[in-house]
Simulated assay, not measured.
Amino acid sequence: MSDEGKKSWFARLKDGLKRSSSKLTTGIADIFTKRRLDNEALEEFEDLLITSDLGVTTAAKLSAELAKTRFDKEVDASEIQEFIAQEVAKILEPVARPLVIDATRKPHVILVVGVNGSGKTTTIGKLAKSYKDQGLNVMMAAGDTFRAAAVEQLKVWGDRTGCPVISRDTGADAAGLAFDAIDQAQRDGVDVLLIDTAGRLQNKAHLMDELKKIVRVIRKRDETAPHDTLLVLDATTGQNAHSQVELFSAATNVSGLIVTKLDGTAKGGVVVALAEKFGKPVHAIGVGESAEDLRPFEARNFARSLAGLED
């Protein structure tokens, strides 16, 4: 087994968040080297949190909390790191909720949305593997019918995981495909049906209308579906993730988030800002390419990794 395979999830998470945590820890060291906590230091601290993508609200909250207990006292960098880890964990704990599959529904329908390039199709493949490994009967539907590459990518995951993939020719009606997929899944006694969707934002109105149509058509086959609508967000987009949550939530009932590509960015703090602003469950995060690098979101581990601390 490779060294990467031997690493604990916390170690891989910490490695994945290195760029984000380095930005924070370097800034903290610059601000809090042998210095009392005065108004100037607090202002610099708040600015650091904002530029680290934790969001204006979170930055103001943490700065005020720090002032309450430490103002005019000597503080060092390690103390500030622990403080950030504790406060960030408090913000994240309410949203760190696993995605629970309802065994009474056959199939449990999961609609996956997000912009092109967010890692949506790959995430579906990784989820399929995870559920298959849990002994569930899984099917995927290649609903991004506008991109042949997306369909082929999902078929590769189908081959890899042994899960059937429902697909149509490029340009086929995505809503019709979703309807047929549910029909097939019901006949086959499938436990989980994962439906991919297109993510073209150059024509937002058309994309959102299509998503609404998919939901309407799905409900003709199962009025309780989709049972979950997951928005996949690319962490490298930073604050742009906020507008994506707003945009997709307006078109579909986004029930939870999955944040990918945290290993490729210094903007990992955006997860905290999203939790603070929207309060939507963060079901999983991704810090690498392999299926094992998409894991359920844990507040404490993420907070300590972001602050550059050991488990």
Rank of each mutant, 00 (worst) to 15 (best):
D53E: 15
P107D: 15
K129R: 13
W9P: 01
A275W: 03
T33K: 11
A67K: 15
D222T: 03
F297Q: 11
K213R: 15
Y131V: 01
M140Q: 04
E4G: 02
A307W: 14
T123E: 06
P281R: 03
T69N: 09
L154Y: 13
S249G: 06
G269H: 14
A103H: 11
A291G: 00
A251W: 13
R97A: 12
I258S: 05
V232Y: 09
I182L: 12
E210K: 08
P226F: 02
Q239M: 10
G5P: 00
D191R: 05
T33L: 15
S243E: 10
S63R: 14
K261S: 00
E310S: 11
Q244H: 04
A64M: 13
R168G: 01
M1P: 02
M1G: 13
A185Y: 12
M1D: 04
A241N: 11
A142Q: 11
F179S: 11
I214G: 12
E43H: 02
F302W: 06
F10C: 00
T197L: 09
A172P: 13
K34L: 05
D191N: 14
V245H: 15
E46W: 04
V217H: 12
L309W: 07
V75D: 07
N240W: 13
E43G: 03
A77Y: 07
S290K: 10
Q153A: 06
K34S: 12
Q186Y: 06
V272N: 11
A241T: 05
F297T: 09
C163I: 00
D38C: 04
L231Q: 10
T58Q: 09
L54E: 03
P226K: 10
G55S: 11
D15F: 02
H227F: 08
E298P: 00
A11H: 01
R70I: 00
R36M: 08
E310H: 05
L127N: 00
L127D: 04
L274F: 07
L62H: 05
R295Y: 05
T260G: 01
G269R: 12
V217P: 10
S118D: 10
L233R: 09
T122N: 08
G5T: 08
V254W: 11
G199A: 04
I110A: 04
F248M: 11
Q184H: 03
G16P: 03
A175L: 05
L17K: 01
A89K: 11
V270A: 14
Q239A: 08
A251C: 06
I182Y: 13
R35F: 10
F71K: 15
A11P: 00
L309I: 02
A141M: 09
I124Y: 03
D234T: 08
D263K: 01
D173E: 14
R105G: 01
A266Y: 15
E289K: 07
T224D: 10
K106C: 01
S167L: 00
N203V: 07
K220G: 00
T229Q: 03
L247A: 09
D144Q: 09
S255H: 11
F10N: 01
V112C: 08
V113E: 06
G135E: 13
R12T: 02
D228M: 03
K212H: 12
S249Y: 06
A172M: 05
G176K: 03
T104A: 15
L274D: 09
S22C: 02
D102F: 06
N253Q: 08
G55C: 09
L201Y: 14
E292R: 14
